[in-house]
Design a binder for these strands. Structure first.
Lengths: 239, 239
DNA sequence: CGATCAATTGAGCGCTGTCAAGGTCCGTGG
DNA sequence: CCACGGACCTTGACAGCGCTCAATTGATCG
């Protein structure tokens, strides 16, 4: 893993998992915890190899991948600030995790977490709730992959991204929407996430551009112009 | 829910969740637990409505569905004997659960489960493990829906089904494979699960028949003839 | 300012969905 | 036991979406 640094002022506060973090911080304030800054592309979990740490994402995006039997890889989930990562389970999973952008993770040794769960029952419950939420997310994404057209998938992704990358303190509501979205994925990664070809992704972005629903600014930025159209295409999936 | 009956001799013993069940049985033997027999088509969870019970499937298959924004429904998971169902979470989920076949469920009141989790910490851990397993399953299915052709999906489903419906005491290995598989789903449901049209499902079954990989016996039975071909098509997904 | 890789665009085709017709299974009643 | 009806399933024809292959354009960095 490499570079590390003591975690002094964590900014994940208002995210769903804040309670876990604060529990940990209260009991063992910033001694064994550290804020790791990882470069884009760094592998965090590699298939079956066991992991002795776990952490909470503070900033950046982590992509979760599974090896397709045909050799190719598919992205099966994205983890945003506030989400868990690492050895949240003892049974090994073929899941691969990689930093999609530069990432900051608040890391803890695994045994520390285990003992904490024993001492704070609330912690285990929070973990379970979060995992059930992830399960819901995965199943909703199954519906996206199963029933939506290429254009709808791209629209859905853009809205999902906008929602997930809102500043922590922003409440729901159309007033606080960000116009300009930073894409944490390349076109190739977008294709792997949406189960499309690179070319199709490109064509759908072009189509959205010609509908004047979005405006692409370089490779990694999108400005959203027409929320109504995008919402209609995504059919209010991730409200 | 309707018909119920005290649970005397439960047969879920050797399934993954046996520990939960036995913990419950030990502490509170068969007083508030009962074995519910439900007919095919009975709805178990309906979207947002809260549920005050939970249970473990003893026999039969339960399908989990999500409403597609386009109106159609998609099956996002199947629950087999040994799996949880019901209020395993407090946060509401839009998930709908329905008996795909006649189903027997060992049911418990929700508060009983909650108190047990407080008394037996192992129980919460088991729940978390099981949920993480479900998450893995969901993500693997995402890969199936994203990258596999219609023929491969059908082959994958047949092998998955064979694996899941093996008798409890059967260990892994090719020796104990069942030749004849009972399909818990109609063609329409199969299509909803595999994200295909009914017609395509039918055509792929025909193709497998013409390859002499399977043999259909009526509408709800399949005899597997060529395991190698099926495995090759499914690419050893659910080993 | 070129070198290099990513992204876009175009042409062509195959897989799968749609629409429509025919066939099969199964419960019901004669 | 057989005839009938209706739901479920199968089969065929056809079109369209998205993938593949190939060439071009564009971005980013030395």
């Amino acid at each position: 893993m490499g570079e590390g640094q003591r975690c002094q002022t964590c900014k994940v506060g208002s995210r769903p998992l804040c309670s876990v973090l604060s529990s940990i911080e209260e009991l063992q304030p910033s001694r064994d915890t550290m804020l790791r800054r990882l470069p884009q592309g760094r592998m965090l979990l590699s298939g079956h190899r066991p992991t002795n740490w776990f952490g909470i994402i503070v900033s950046g995006v982590v992509k979760l991948m599974l090896n397709d039997p045909n050799g190719r890889q598919q992205i099966v989930g994205l983890q945003f600030p506030g989400d868990f990562i690492g050895a949240t389970q003892s049974n090994p999973s073929p899941l691969i995790a990689e930093a999609a952008t530069r990432v900051e993770i608040c890391c803890f040794p695994r045994n520390m977490f285990d003992t904490l769960v024993g001492r704070v029952p609330e912690l285990g419950r929070t973990m379970l709730m979060h995992t059930l939420g992830e399960l819901d997310t995965a199943r909703q994404w199954m519906v996206v992959l199963g029933n939506k057209s290429a254009l709808e998938r791209v629209a859905t992704f853009l809205l999902l991204l906008e929602q997930k990358t809102r500043p922590c303190d922003a409440t729901e509501g159309p007033g606080v929407r960000q116009e300009i979205i930073e894409l944490p994925l390349s076109r190739t990664e977008l294709a792997e996430y949406l189960s499309l070809s690179i070319e199709t992704v490109s064509r759908q972005l072009k189509q959205l551009r010609s509908m004047e629903a979005i405006e692409t600014m370089g490779r990694r930025k999108v400005r959203i112009l027409d929320w109504a159209t995008l919402n209609r295409l995504a059919a209010h999936e991730f409200a």
